[in-house]
């Protein structure tokens, strides 16, 4: 009469307190975030894990969209490099996007995001690839000359060592001069996560006072 699985905690939420210690989230916020995770991870296969298709579906509301950046973000979230996101990976990555997270974590994440080939620097060809991808996905059309001049100007400012690439130190200096470049590294939603997903209280395991 006893199905032990029925009494197990859902996969990925075995220890919300430990996850709260690892991230900037409180235990209640971790539990509320898990409500979001459950929604996204059950969209295609209800297995308690987010695959790339489910991630794209949540981002674009369609799984048809190919996006260089959605792929890149997914790969950075996927710290276990197994092609799927468990709740721990999801919570740890989103923690960086919390308004209270250290700016250095946001700078590091954004650098890795744009360092497409993971060589430790952002090269001109990568910047061009990302500019073209952004223009294509938004249906904007700029001539190659205009794109090249935007990249020239960017490297004139960012590449202070004049070696044709942007290293981590140069990236840091650039974003500190232009904080708007980190705008998408902060999600205000994460501050209100417990009010966005109030149903977490029905599954809460702890008294988070």
């Amino acid at each position: 009469c006893c199905d032990a699985d029925l009494y197990k905690q859902p996969r990925g939420l075995e220890d919300p307190e430990a996850l709260a210690r690892e991230t900037v989230f409180s235990v209640s916020e971790i539990e509320a975030l898990y409500e979001l995770f459950k929604k996204i991870s059950s969209a295609v296969i209800d297995d308690g894990l987010i695959n790339k298709e489910e991630f794209q579906l949540a981002l674009f509301k369609t799984n048809k969209k190919e996006s260089l950046f959605a792929d890149r973000v997914f790969d950075l979230f996927d710290t276990k490099h197994n092609g799927i996101l468990d709740f721990e990976e999801f919570a740890c990555a989103l923690s960086i996007f919390h308004p209270n997270s250290p700016i250095d974590d946001k700078i590091e994440f954004s650098f890795q995001l744009y360092d497409l080939k993971q060589q430790g620097f952002i090269e001109r060809q990568e910047v061009k690839q990302m500019v073209v991808a952004t223009l294509t996905e938004s249906g904007m059309n700029l001539s190659d000359d205009v794109i090249e001049s935007i990249i020239d100007k960017t490297f004139e400012e960012a590449d202070t060592k004049h070696d044709g690439k942007i290293d981590k130190e140069e990236w840091r200096n650039l974003v500190l001069r232009h904080p708007s470049l980190l705008k998408n590294m902060t999600l205000q939603y994460l501050k209100d996560i417990t009010t966005t997903f109030p149903s977490f209280v029905f599954h809460s395991q702890v008294d988070d006072t």
């Binding site: 950046f69 910047v127 990302m130 938004s138 001049s149 935007i150 100007k153 999600l187 939603y189």
Partner: peptide, 25 residues
């Protein structure tokens, strides 16, 4: 005037980088 724009400002407009969309799931 697009030429006045930093390439990374342009890139940051990508929808794929707008993770706020995850919260409309």
């Amino acid at each position: 005037q697009p030429v006045a724009m930093n390439a990374f400002e342009l890139i940051s407009l990508s929808k794929g980088l707008n993770l706020g969309n995850l919260f409309d799931a």
